[in-house]
Design a protein around this nucleic acid. Sequence first.
DNA 1: CGACTAAGTTCACGATTTGTAAGAAGTGGA
DNA 2: TCCACTTCTTACAAATCGTGAACTTAGTCG
Lengths: 407, 407
Amino acid sequence: MDGRRTTVRDMRRSNRSVILTSIFRDGPLSRFELGQHTLLSAASVSNLVGELLEERVVEEAGSVESDGGRPRVLLRVNPRFGYVIGAEVGETRVRVELFDLAMQLRAIAVYPIETATLDPESAVIYVTGGVAKVLEKAGVRPEDVLGLGVAVAGIVEGPAIVHAQTLGWEAVPFGAMLAAETDIPIQVDNGANTLGQAEMWFGAGRGATDAVVALVGSGVGAALVTGGSSYRGIRSSAGEWGHTTIMYGGRRCRCGSKGCLEAYVGAEGVLERFQLLNDGVAASGLDEEEAFTGLLDSVKRSKVAAKVVDDTIGYLGAGFANLVNLFNPERIVLGGWAGLLLGERYLPQLREAVGKHALRQPFAQVTIELCELGRDAVALGAATLPVLRLLRDGGVPVPRSFPAQVN
Amino acid sequence: MDGRRTTVRDMRRSNRSVILTSIFRDGPLSRFELGQHTLLSAASVSNLVGELLEERVVEEAGSVESDGGRPRVLLRVNPRFGYVIGAEVGETRVRVELFDLAMQLRAIAVYPIETATLDPESAVIYVTGGVAKVLEKAGVRPEDVLGLGVAVAGIVEGPAIVHAQTLGWEAVPFGAMLAAETDIPIQVDNGANTLGQAEMWFGAGRGATDAVVALVGSGVGAALVTGGSSYRGIRSSAGEWGHTTIMYGGRRCRCGSKGCLEAYVGAEGVLERFQLLNDGVAASGLDEEEAFTGLLDSVKRSKVAAKVVDDTIGYLGAGFANLVNLFNPERIVLGGWAGLLLGERYLPQLREAVGKHALRQPFAQVTIELCELGRDAVALGAATLPVLRLLRDGGVPVPRSFPAQVN
DNA sequence: CGACTAAGTTCACGATTTGTAAGAAGTGGA
DNA sequence: TCCACTTCTTACAAATCGTGAACTTAGTCG
């Protein structure tokens, strides 16, 4: 099977999708404005909107006067047409959030993980338990949930198979395991990707079509967005920016290779470098985040700290420049807790460092921004997955049927 | 203006495109097979093929018996429906080639460049002269040329504006300059991209949808292909792989930065490294290509040469690994004259080096191959640009009108 | 020569967008 | 209160398109 045919139904679905996406993204809109946005004729807009209104995906929201004529009726996505749930399965917690279609948070459930590693079976229990909890809290019926997006800290490939080194998961069919417990449609993705998605929709990435959301925490990753949608590669493990070699033969990285970017700008790597230069003396009794903040705060007192931070900015700048040269993006968003701490203090210096390593042409076309959402946005981003699917399908909810669909 | 509407005509154009592309790519095909490939109904296939036949884009090509029933009539793209021209504007030559729609070479014109730098005006004269020449040689009328694809050694952005450091061109509106001299539709692209395109269609990239064609010559570049089509970034200067930092603070590169991949694996950089280790003694009286071949041939005799080549494979492996980690491609094709010389001798070692630096998951999903077409394929790749457009538009030639369209 | 088989064609039908014209919903002035 | 005016909304006919079912065509085999 080759290229895909186009039938008359694809046309309608596509136009419904265009209209619905327009309403969702650009707020309350009149039919007239929809026509301008979508280039559809007034007749078609009316027709399609009528259908969406009938199905309750869209609702009227007041009206606005117009220079003496009939007032325009505003349309918006019906926030209560359905709900979406985003779940974050991380190393230290499982977090489940319920949103309405206006992406307003309606309920939340958080479970800290005490055990060293979270096995897949427990993760399923936490997630399904969290789903039940948020449904109850918000008073929403399960059948009104359009979908559940799950973000995991690892590589997700094919039909929701998860490989997560830090959790000790290897080829875990997490999507299928969840689908066995609920008939809510499930989508699984990498946490870095969902956080990137959240920034693209609601944060510093708004309006960009070709962007990279770089995440610097203890580890380092990136979400690539090309042509308005997330780029995943042949089997959705693209974006492993943290393990690109930036110093051939350099520091050993926990991935087993040497000279990875992560070994230089990941918080763990930065602290190790500091300890090395500081005659082996490390801040004790602090967790990684406190230690990292302490390091940043001590640059004025300590020459060693200043050098370590300075180097970090340089390395990070080179890493960004690699992205600029390879992807020619329109925007790079720096996120992650360590990235945020660094960016708050050193964004100008970072921009300068990028300029030193990037080619003039693509560098002139990119803007480098700090992320706007906290790290709690991982679940929000996961919740956008079912929304994205709804918009793409023109407002037709995914049918709930066996075999449960994954991804 | 936002998302694009779909009308009933887009549907037909799209289906024509699917059918025509199928016939072009998968050789002579019967209507029946077309139906299977495209999922279109037999009625629609017949209808659309009839139209294409009527317009002479497609022609019948014999028939094949079928287990006792009516024989299937084979269809192929009419090689003489139109012709395409590919031009390569390089540092040492301008090369113009004329192809029919079966991509058979019909005529060629080559102009060596003696002067140190080729100014844009002269380049226009060479190209237009070459076009006239190949038309005359092949006995083709200008109005039968569907398009002219031009490959230049530099960054091409927006409406065919060219920045070519090595030619000394800065923001040259090369497309517009050419369009002023002829009414053949013109498309301009980077030479690395067109060579990559050629490999994807006719060489080692056949069948892949997510691939990288890496070009190692005196300099280093790459063509990125994602989801079956060339990735260009926000303003089409993506793919500058040669200037990604691989050794932070390392060797100075001609781009002005330090530690670029090109400074380590580009032929110029390799020879410099050899000279450095060899007590400053360089092979004299040889051009770069001879010197590079000589270096490779001397690894058995010279420990220094062996080390330099060994290191080169290591660096290149890390560079490939970066691509593997970031893009998760299905295939990487190594090309360029130096890449070819290296690959012929050290492909297994190179694969091993990539494995050392890449993550296990994406590495297991990629195959690394040697390119199959010589460097003369740059013009062939350029000629595919108008073909691609014809296929995309479903066999409707680009109208020749003012203002001349570029890109 | 006639049945059989498979490929290709014709035609009515339903789905879809579009342009046009008619209708509806307000505003402002008499 | 009524009426003209402006602007948004809807109804309808026309045009286009893919589809399914019946039909035609072209070989093969007995």
